[in-house]
């Protein structure tokens, strides 16, 4: 008996799967965008002007607000992710019964999350650059430095660095979720 070992076309499935739940997709992008805006700007502020950042954080209200916003966005985003995985359990069960391996399901979920985060962060970076450009004088004033191109580029670089760090953090959060949902008994899911 010959076993075929052709690989699943993950990109096709990811693309289809990602846009299948449009409402959830848009909600996740919005939450990720807003959360990213809060955490990434704070982090890039820390990288650009550590003293100013520390001064803001030393204010108890600001510090509490910063923590609260991060916590709310993180919880909301993870809840949305879990809900989407749950909604798609039947689909994953169907794939497993059709012959997809556990690894293929994990890769599928992970790829979808990866694409979602890339889209959100891509949008975020684009708007951030526009934001920095339009408010360059105000931002420079806030940092009490004179505005020049190096200042904008430095802000963009710090923002990009923060983006990469948060991206890695999110991928670390996604992975156990993908493993957990792929290990559920597929037949029990599609049967009941």
């Amino acid at each position: 008996m010959e076993l075929r070992t052709d690989k699943i076309n993950l990109f096709w499935l990811s693309r289809k799967g990602l846009f299948r739940f449009k409402t959830w997709f848009v909600l996740k992008v919005v939450v990720l965008f807003l959360w990213g805006f809060v955490i990434l700007n704070s982090y890039s502020l820390y990288l650009s002007q550590p003293r100013l950042f520390q001064a803001s954080i030393s204010n108890k209200f600001m510090f509490f607000l910063f923590l609260l916003l991060n916590f709310i966005f993180f919880v909301f985003f993870m809840a949305l992710t879990i809900l989407t995985f749950k909604l798609r359990q039947v689909e994953f069960g169907l794939y497993r019964c059709s012959g997809a391996t556990r690894r293929e399901i994990i890769t599928l979920m992970f790829n979808e999350s990866l694409m979602l985060t890339l889209i959100s962060f891509g949008l975020l970076f684009f708007f951030e650059i526009i934001f920095i450009y339009f408010f360059r004088l105000e931002i420079a004033g806030l940092f009490k430095v004179s505005y020049d191109l190096r200042f904008t580029l430095g802000m963009a670089k710090n923002f990009l660095l923060s983006l990469v760090l948060v991206f890695i953090l999110l991928m670390v959060c996604y992975f156990p979720l993908a493993v957990y949902y792929s290990c559920k008994d597929p037949y029990e899911i599609v049967r009941y």
Binding site: I8, N9, W12, L13, Y95, G99
Partner: peptide
């Protein structure tokens, strides 16, 4: 859908 796991759907 089941073909996605054995063939290229491009």
């Amino acid at each position: 859908t089941p073909l996605s796991f054995i063939t290229d759907l491009s």
